[in-house]
Computed example of a mutant assay.
Amino acid sequence: MKRILIVTGQSGSGKSSALQVLEDLGYYCIDNLPLALLPEIVGKLDQENNLEQLALGVDVRSTRADLQEFDQVFEQLQKYGSVDIIYLTTQDQELITRFSASRRPHPLAGRWPSLHECIQEEKGLLLPIQMRATVNIDTTDKSVHDLKHTLLSKLGQSDNLIVILQSFGYKHGIPLDADYVFDVRHLPNPHWDLQLRKLSGLDAPVQKFLSEFEQTGQMFEDIHQFLAKWLPAFAEGHRHYITVSIGCTGGQHRSVYMVNRLKQALEANWSIQVLHREMKHWS
Protein backbone atom coordinates (compact mmCIF):
# COMPACT_ATOMS: atom_id res chain seq x y z
CA MET A 1 0.00 0.00 0.00
CA LYS A 2 1.45 3.35 -1.00
CA ARG A 3 -0.75 6.07 0.49
CA ILE A 4 -3.00 6.16 3.55
CA LEU A 5 -5.17 9.17 4.38
CA ILE A 6 -6.81 9.66 7.76
CA VAL A 7 -9.79 11.97 7.37
CA THR A 8 -11.06 13.59 10.54
CA GLY A 9 -12.13 16.88 12.08
CA GLN A 10 -15.05 18.54 13.77
CA SER A 11 -18.49 17.01 13.35
CA GLY A 12 -20.37 18.95 10.69
CA SER A 13 -17.20 20.06 8.90
CA GLY A 14 -17.65 17.75 5.91
CA LYS A 15 -15.84 14.48 6.68
CA SER A 16 -18.42 12.38 4.84
CA SER A 17 -18.28 14.69 1.82
CA ALA A 18 -14.48 14.53 1.83
CA LEU A 19 -14.57 10.73 1.86
CA GLN A 20 -16.99 10.73 -1.08
CA VAL A 21 -14.60 12.97 -3.02
CA LEU A 22 -11.68 10.65 -2.20
CA GLU A 23 -13.72 7.62 -3.26
CA ASP A 24 -14.31 9.32 -6.62
CA LEU A 25 -10.53 9.81 -6.86
CA GLY A 26 -9.96 6.07 -6.50
CA TYR A 27 -9.38 5.73 -2.76
CA TYR A 28 -10.73 2.68 -0.92
CA CYS A 29 -12.66 4.33 1.93
CA ILE A 30 -13.49 3.01 5.40
CA ASP A 31 -15.44 5.12 7.90
CA ASN A 32 -16.24 5.07 11.62
CA LEU A 33 -14.14 2.12 12.77
CA PRO A 34 -12.59 2.24 16.27
CA LEU A 35 -9.09 3.69 16.13
CA ALA A 36 -7.56 0.72 17.92
CA LEU A 37 -8.70 -1.64 15.15
CA LEU A 38 -7.29 0.36 12.24
CA PRO A 39 -3.73 -1.08 12.16
CA GLU A 40 -5.04 -4.64 12.19
CA ILE A 41 -7.59 -3.98 9.43
CA VAL A 42 -5.11 -2.03 7.29
CA GLY A 43 -2.59 -4.85 7.69
CA LYS A 44 -5.16 -7.40 6.55
CA LEU A 45 -6.12 -5.25 3.55
CA ASP A 46 -2.46 -4.86 2.66
CA GLN A 47 -1.99 -8.63 2.60
CA GLU A 48 -5.13 -9.55 0.71
CA ASN A 49 -5.60 -6.63 -1.70
CA ASN A 50 -3.38 -4.66 -4.01
CA LEU A 51 -4.59 -1.28 -2.75
CA GLU A 52 -2.68 1.82 -3.81
CA GLN A 53 -4.79 4.38 -1.93
CA LEU A 54 -6.73 4.00 1.31
CA ALA A 55 -8.80 6.63 3.18
CA LEU A 56 -9.85 6.10 6.79
CA GLY A 57 -12.59 8.20 8.37
CA VAL A 58 -12.08 8.87 12.08
CA ASP A 59 -14.22 11.01 14.38
CA VAL A 60 -15.01 11.75 17.99
CA ARG A 61 -17.17 8.64 18.33
CA SER A 62 -13.96 6.69 18.98
CA THR A 63 -13.39 6.19 22.69
CA ARG A 64 -11.47 8.83 24.64
CA ALA A 65 -8.77 6.23 25.39
CA ASP A 66 -8.37 5.46 21.67
CA LEU A 67 -8.05 9.15 20.80
CA GLN A 68 -5.40 9.66 23.48
CA GLU A 69 -3.40 6.72 22.05
CA PHE A 70 -3.52 8.09 18.52
CA ASP A 71 0.26 8.51 18.26
CA GLN A 72 0.72 4.75 18.65
CA VAL A 73 -1.94 4.00 16.03
CA PHE A 74 -0.30 6.48 13.65
CA GLU A 75 3.12 4.84 14.02
CA GLN A 76 1.67 1.37 13.39
CA LEU A 77 -0.08 2.59 10.22
CA GLN A 78 3.21 3.94 8.87
CA LYS A 79 4.38 0.33 8.44
CA TYR A 80 2.01 0.00 5.49
CA GLY A 81 2.72 3.23 3.58
CA SER A 82 2.95 7.00 3.80
CA VAL A 83 0.31 8.41 6.13
CA ASP A 84 -1.25 11.87 5.83
CA ILE A 85 -3.94 13.34 8.07
CA ILE A 86 -6.65 15.58 6.63
CA TYR A 87 -8.19 17.69 9.39
CA LEU A 88 -11.42 19.54 8.61
CA THR A 89 -12.39 22.52 10.73
CA THR A 90 -15.21 25.06 10.66
CA GLN A 91 -15.91 28.23 12.62
CA ASP A 92 -18.16 27.63 15.62
CA GLN A 93 -21.09 29.77 14.49
CA GLU A 94 -21.20 28.03 11.10
CA LEU A 95 -21.23 24.63 12.81
CA ILE A 96 -24.13 25.73 15.00
CA THR A 97 -25.97 26.91 11.87
CA ARG A 98 -25.36 23.60 10.09
CA PHE A 99 -26.58 21.48 13.01
CA SER A 100 -29.66 23.68 13.40
CA ALA A 101 -30.46 23.37 9.69
CA SER A 102 -29.98 19.59 9.60
CA ARG A 103 -31.73 19.02 12.97
CA ARG A 104 -29.26 16.24 13.67
CA PRO A 105 -27.77 15.93 17.16
CA HIS A 106 -24.06 16.41 17.75
CA PRO A 107 -22.27 13.09 18.53
CA LEU A 108 -21.55 14.41 22.04
CA ALA A 109 -25.08 15.69 22.66
CA GLY A 110 -25.74 13.06 25.31
CA ARG A 111 -22.80 14.21 27.42
CA TRP A 112 -23.08 18.02 27.24
CA PRO A 113 -26.21 20.19 27.57
CA SER A 114 -25.46 22.74 24.83
CA LEU A 115 -24.21 22.52 21.26
CA HIS A 116 -21.52 25.12 22.01
CA GLU A 117 -20.14 22.92 24.83
CA CYS A 118 -20.17 19.87 22.55
CA ILE A 119 -18.13 21.73 19.94
CA GLN A 120 -15.54 22.88 22.48
CA GLU A 121 -15.22 19.41 24.03
CA GLU A 122 -14.82 17.82 20.61
CA LYS A 123 -11.93 20.17 19.78
CA GLY A 124 -10.11 18.97 22.89
CA LEU A 125 -10.74 15.30 22.17
CA LEU A 126 -9.46 15.58 18.60
CA LEU A 127 -6.40 17.64 19.53
CA PRO A 128 -3.95 14.65 19.47
CA ILE A 129 -4.96 14.00 15.85
CA GLN A 130 -5.04 17.66 14.85
CA MET A 131 -1.47 18.13 16.11
CA ARG A 132 -0.28 15.60 13.52
CA ALA A 133 -2.41 16.91 10.64
CA THR A 134 -0.55 17.42 7.37
CA VAL A 135 -3.54 18.86 5.49
CA ASN A 136 -5.79 21.42 7.21
CA ILE A 137 -8.95 22.57 5.46
CA ASP A 138 -11.33 25.25 6.72
CA THR A 139 -14.78 24.41 5.28
CA THR A 140 -16.62 27.41 6.77
CA ASP A 141 -17.40 28.97 3.38
CA LYS A 142 -16.94 25.91 1.17
CA SER A 143 -19.52 24.05 -0.86
CA VAL A 144 -18.96 20.38 -1.73
CA HIS A 145 -17.58 21.56 -5.09
CA ASP A 146 -15.17 23.92 -3.30
CA LEU A 147 -14.10 21.11 -0.97
CA LYS A 148 -13.33 18.85 -3.93
CA HIS A 149 -11.26 21.58 -5.58
CA THR A 150 -9.35 22.19 -2.34
CA LEU A 151 -8.67 18.48 -1.81
CA LEU A 152 -7.37 18.13 -5.36
CA SER A 153 -5.09 21.11 -4.85
CA LYS A 154 -3.80 20.21 -1.42
CA LEU A 155 -3.27 16.50 -2.01
CA GLY A 156 -1.61 17.11 -5.36
CA GLN A 157 -1.78 14.74 -8.28
CA SER A 158 2.01 14.56 -8.65
CA ASP A 159 5.18 15.10 -6.65
CA ASN A 160 5.30 18.77 -7.68
CA LEU A 161 4.65 21.44 -5.08
CA ILE A 162 1.38 23.33 -5.62
CA VAL A 163 1.35 26.91 -4.35
CA ILE A 164 -2.14 28.07 -3.39
CA LEU A 165 -2.43 31.86 -3.36
CA GLN A 166 -5.56 32.98 -1.53
CA SER A 167 -6.97 36.46 -1.08
CA PHE A 168 -9.31 37.12 1.85
CA GLY A 169 -10.93 39.87 3.90
CA TYR A 170 -10.15 40.23 7.58
CA LYS A 171 -13.70 41.30 8.32
CA HIS A 172 -14.80 37.80 7.23
CA GLY A 173 -12.19 36.03 9.39
CA ILE A 174 -8.66 34.75 8.90
CA PRO A 175 -8.43 31.47 6.91
CA LEU A 176 -7.81 28.57 9.28
CA ASP A 177 -6.00 26.50 6.67
CA ALA A 178 -3.28 28.99 5.71
CA ASP A 179 0.42 28.16 6.08
CA TYR A 180 1.41 31.82 5.80
CA VAL A 181 -0.71 34.97 6.21
CA PHE A 182 0.38 38.39 4.96
CA ASP A 183 -1.51 41.55 5.93
CA VAL A 184 -1.76 44.30 3.27
CA ARG A 185 -4.29 46.54 5.05
CA HIS A 186 -1.64 49.24 5.42
CA LEU A 187 -1.63 49.86 1.64
CA PRO A 188 -3.79 52.68 0.19
CA ASN A 189 -7.40 51.51 -0.08
CA PRO A 190 -9.16 51.81 -3.47
CA HIS A 191 -12.47 51.42 -1.61
CA TRP A 192 -12.44 55.14 -0.78
CA ASP A 193 -12.35 56.08 -4.46
CA LEU A 194 -15.98 55.89 -5.58
CA GLN A 195 -14.96 55.09 -9.16
CA LEU A 196 -12.95 52.07 -7.96
CA ARG A 197 -15.19 50.82 -5.15
CA LYS A 198 -17.23 48.38 -7.24
CA LEU A 199 -14.19 47.07 -9.09
CA SER A 200 -11.73 44.44 -7.82
CA GLY A 201 -7.99 43.93 -7.77
CA LEU A 202 -8.38 42.07 -11.08
CA ASP A 203 -9.44 45.27 -12.85
CA ALA A 204 -6.86 47.50 -14.56
CA PRO A 205 -7.94 50.81 -12.89
CA VAL A 206 -7.44 49.31 -9.42
CA GLN A 207 -4.11 47.79 -10.44
CA LYS A 208 -2.96 51.16 -11.80
CA PHE A 209 -4.05 52.93 -8.60
CA LEU A 210 -2.14 50.56 -6.31
CA SER A 211 0.96 50.30 -8.49
CA GLU A 212 1.53 54.05 -8.23
CA PHE A 213 2.40 53.80 -4.53
CA GLU A 214 5.98 52.94 -3.57
CA GLN A 215 4.95 50.96 -0.50
CA THR A 216 2.85 48.63 -2.70
CA GLY A 217 5.94 47.66 -4.67
CA GLN A 218 7.98 47.27 -1.50
CA MET A 219 5.38 44.95 0.05
CA PHE A 220 5.21 42.88 -3.11
CA GLU A 221 9.01 42.54 -3.26
CA ASP A 222 9.21 41.45 0.39
CA ILE A 223 6.57 38.72 -0.03
CA HIS A 224 7.97 37.62 -3.39
CA GLN A 225 11.53 37.37 -2.08
CA PHE A 226 10.35 35.37 0.95
CA LEU A 227 8.50 32.87 -1.23
CA ALA A 228 11.28 32.65 -3.83
CA LYS A 229 13.72 31.81 -1.04
CA TRP A 230 11.67 29.24 0.85
CA LEU A 231 9.46 27.48 -1.73
CA PRO A 232 12.39 25.31 -2.90
CA ALA A 233 12.84 24.11 0.68
CA PHE A 234 9.20 23.07 0.88
CA ALA A 235 9.52 21.26 -2.45
CA GLU A 236 12.61 19.40 -1.28
CA GLY A 237 10.68 18.32 1.81
CA HIS A 238 8.14 16.58 -0.48
CA ARG A 239 5.27 18.86 0.48
CA HIS A 240 2.33 18.56 -1.91
CA TYR A 241 1.06 22.10 -1.34
CA ILE A 242 1.55 25.33 0.57
CA THR A 243 -1.21 27.89 1.14
CA VAL A 244 -0.23 31.57 1.19
CA SER A 245 -3.07 33.88 2.20
CA ILE A 246 -3.04 37.64 1.58
CA GLY A 247 -5.56 39.70 3.51
CA CYS A 248 -7.01 43.20 3.31
CA THR A 249 -10.14 44.59 4.95
CA GLY A 250 -12.80 43.28 2.57
CA GLY A 251 -10.85 40.91 0.31
CA GLN A 252 -11.77 42.74 -2.90
CA HIS A 253 -9.01 45.16 -3.87
CA ARG A 254 -5.55 45.11 -2.24
CA SER A 255 -5.31 41.41 -1.40
CA VAL A 256 -6.67 40.41 -4.82
CA TYR A 257 -4.17 42.71 -6.54
CA MET A 258 -1.27 41.25 -4.54
CA VAL A 259 -2.32 37.63 -5.21
CA ASN A 260 -2.64 38.34 -8.92
CA ARG A 261 0.79 40.00 -9.04
CA LEU A 262 2.42 37.15 -7.09
CA LYS A 263 0.84 34.61 -9.45
CA GLN A 264 2.41 36.36 -12.44
CA ALA A 265 5.80 36.42 -10.72
CA LEU A 266 5.78 32.77 -9.58
CA GLU A 267 3.93 30.81 -12.26
CA ALA A 268 7.01 30.36 -14.45
CA ASN A 269 8.61 28.16 -11.77
CA TRP A 270 5.71 26.79 -9.72
CA SER A 271 2.27 25.27 -10.17
CA ILE A 272 -0.09 27.99 -8.93
CA GLN A 273 -3.71 27.75 -7.77
CA VAL A 274 -5.54 31.03 -7.08
CA LEU A 275 -8.51 31.35 -4.71
CA HIS A 276 -10.35 34.64 -4.10
CA ARG A 277 -12.31 33.67 -1.00
CA GLU A 278 -14.52 36.73 -0.82
CA MET A 279 -15.50 36.89 -4.49
CA LYS A 280 -19.13 36.22 -3.56
CA HIS A 281 -19.08 39.41 -1.44
CA TRP A 282 -17.73 41.69 -4.16
CA SER A 283 -20.13 44.51 -4.88
Rank of each mutant, 00 (worst) to 15 (best):
S82V: 13
D84H: 00
Q166W: 00
Q91S: 06
H145Q: 14
I174A: 13
H145S: 11
I164D: 01
L161W: 11
S82L: 12
T139K: 09
T150D: 10
T97G: 10
D138G: 13
H145A: 13
G110E: 08
I137F: 11
Q130E: 15
Q68V: 04
Q166Y: 08
H145N: 10
D138M: 08
E122N: 09
L151S: 12
H106E: 04
P105N: 10
L152D: 10
I137R: 12
D84P: 04
L127V: 00
V73S: 05
D146H: 15
W112H: 15
P105V: 02
K142H: 15
S100R: 14
Y170I: 05
A101K: 15
Q78H: 02
K123R: 15
I162M: 09
T134Y: 07
P105D: 08
R64T: 14
L67V: 12
E69C: 04
K79C: 07
A133W: 12
R104C: 01
C118H: 04
K123L: 13
V163A: 04
R61P: 00
G124Q: 15
P107R: 09
E117M: 10
R132D: 01
P113R: 07
R64K: 15
L115D: 01
E94N: 03
H149D: 13
S102F: 13
T90L: 03
H106A: 04
T134I: 02
D84C: 07
F74W: 11
T139A: 03
Q157G: 13
R64M: 08
V144R: 14
Q157K: 15
G81S: 02
R61C: 06
A178D: 12
Q157W: 01
R64S: 12
R103I: 12
P175T: 05
Q91F: 08
G156A: 13
F70W: 06
E52R: 10
K142C: 11
Q78A: 13
V144D: 05
E48Q: 01
G81M: 09
Q76T: 01
P175N: 06
P128C: 08
N50A: 11
E52T: 02
L147F: 01
I86G: 04
D84N: 07
I129C: 05
L165P: 08
A55G: 02
E75T: 06
L115H: 06
L77A: 12
H172K: 14
K79T: 05
E48H: 02
S102I: 06
P128R: 08
D159S: 15
